[in-house]
Design a protein around this nucleic acid. Sequence first.
RNA 1: GCCGAAAUAGCUCAGUGGUAGAGCAACUGAUUCGUAAUCAGUAGGUCCGCGGUUCAAAUCCGCGUUUCGGCACCA
Length: 640
Amino acid sequence: MSLFAITLPDGSQRHYDRPMSGAEIALDIGPGLAKSALAVRVDGTMRDLAGIIDRDVHLAIVTKRDPDALELLRHDAAHVMAEAVKELYPDAQVTIGPAIDNGFYYDFARATPFTPDDLIRIEARMQEIVSRDEVIQREEMDRDQAVRFFEGMGEKYKAELIASIPEGQPIGLYRQGAFIDLCRGPHLPSTGKLGKAFKLMKVAGAYWRGDSRNEMLQRIYGTAWFEEKDLQAYLTMLEEAEKRDHRRLGREMALFHQQDEAVGSVFWHPKGWTLWRTVEGYIRNRLEASGYVEVKTPQLVDRSLWEASGHWEKFGANMFTVQTADERTLAIKPMNCPCHVQIFRTGIKSYRDLPLRMAEFGSCHRYEPSGAMHGIMRVRAFTQDDAHIFCTEDQITSETVAFCELLKEVYRDFGFEDVRVKFSDRPPTRAGSDEIWDKAEGALLAASAAAGLETTRNPGEGAFYGPKLEFVLRDAIGRDWQCGTMQVDFVLPERLDAAYIAEDGQKHRPVMLHRAILGSFERFLGILIEHYAGRFPIWLAPLQVVVATITNEADAYAAQVLAQLRARGLRAECDLRNEKINLKVREHSLAKVPVMLVVGRREAEMSNVAVRRLGGSNQEILALGEAVDKLVAEAVVPGA
RNA sequence: GCCGAAAUAGCUCAGUGGUAGAGCAACUGAUUCGUAAUCAGUAGGUCCGCGGUUCAAAUCCGCGUUUCGGCACCA
């Protein structure tokens, strides 16, 4: 007589005549499976192995091969770390400790900060706890009981967390050894299942509940894997990421530098500036082909304009200001939009002028918090590939669709295929009425649907004047970067009194679409450097070709080769030094020059070149003219 | 801005209270060489800044600056 039946992923069914735990079912299926079982998936939801099943369900036994198993492991690692910390430092209070990408963290409240030596001790104690193989057991309490329980242990943060959970639902607690923690679960059956492939990485401050008004906790980060080789692979990946750090490559490749006297700004060196100009030239062509006009507006603008635009009130804390001798206050522009409205406002605009797509490589300054600075990715002086599209409400959709097409094309040209889109709606601090926000959000959502975008919602993250689409691209090593943006703005045209004459002969407000593709040049170039690890495709490389001689008998010929390359617009240099070719190959390879043309006596006599590609180990002998034609074709800027 | 760490030659780093070091780079000379380091020599320092402790400070203490790792913020 069967009480219930489970259906396994392969469709087979098993019948039971009494309630069974997940572990018992795994054992019933096979002893091997029982040994490797970590949790169960009941009707799609992960549950503890010890959980009781007493009704018809779809059930899967979760082992480490399950894609979600790592999250379980990492969550357990966080608990084991908390147990170790409580054993070693009883004065520390526990707070929260989730699994994150590649690892986990746990936030502790403690008067004395943890030191790197503490991390070593904690990690050693974690190994002990794993060896103890403590059973991890779920318990439940009602809410008020749980609050008293944690208050009784002096864990005021836990008590506060539980107190904010609605009354009525039972509170899940997990006990392992003497350690007990509030947790939704599920967890592995015992601490031994964690294994030894984990490592504590760093300690850092983090605000309680993520709010900068709250006290700061001590956060310990770790990484955890099922296999030692996965851990080693991850650590190797981190080393590789470090090697492509744009700050390091910027120095090694002589692209730019930064120094203390100009914090948050960049000194672009000749090679870095060549890269910049290449990108700028490329994007300028794309914009021209897409019907944009380019403008240039002032750096310093009187505060009255910023007051009128709303920036003084909403953005003032981030603005650099200047006092003049005649006691006027000017601000260095943090954004280009109010200035673009000034251009729009001169003369009379007709509906026939719309949409008016006004672009500027606008140099902006923002007083960013000191801790936010990061190489050239986050700076106080930056240049946007900014544009404002003045249009009618009816044109929002078609303009958004056209913009999304342009954006995807640009990203593809830079080697980014994977692009995600976020939709950010009204923030708590904003300008404009709720009706206007309803309209703006509705218009942008409809337009993004028309452009065929799948968006994820980002509540409360819009700009103060309007909702935005944010375009996030994924680089060569899987990191996400927010670059492009498209924002609908009904507020600024109103505040700055922009108008056009419509077909009805009356004045109407245009809508402003704020948009950028690269975001800021500084940041985008930083991303490009890291994405390509400095090995740029030939069209972007600051130095495209080096002509290297084997003997000075080839010097005159090398000069001829160089002249031909330059005459065809290639960025090329000669290396005539009296050095061995091995050294020249090594140095120009390390400098990441895409192509080397090696010439010796043989090439000079035959008017050939030996083409050596960066990363390649062999060379191709070509006639000079043929080689130059080939390189010129490869170096063509996309869209040119 | 907050928490923590760091700052020594152009770069990477050593130097725990007693004369400031190494490798690479630079410079000079020799070498004319066939695809990732030729050999020899020379020069190079406010040890981040300012104060303090000490007979004596790169080293210990305080303040400041900047950078790094996070948090918060954000293009």
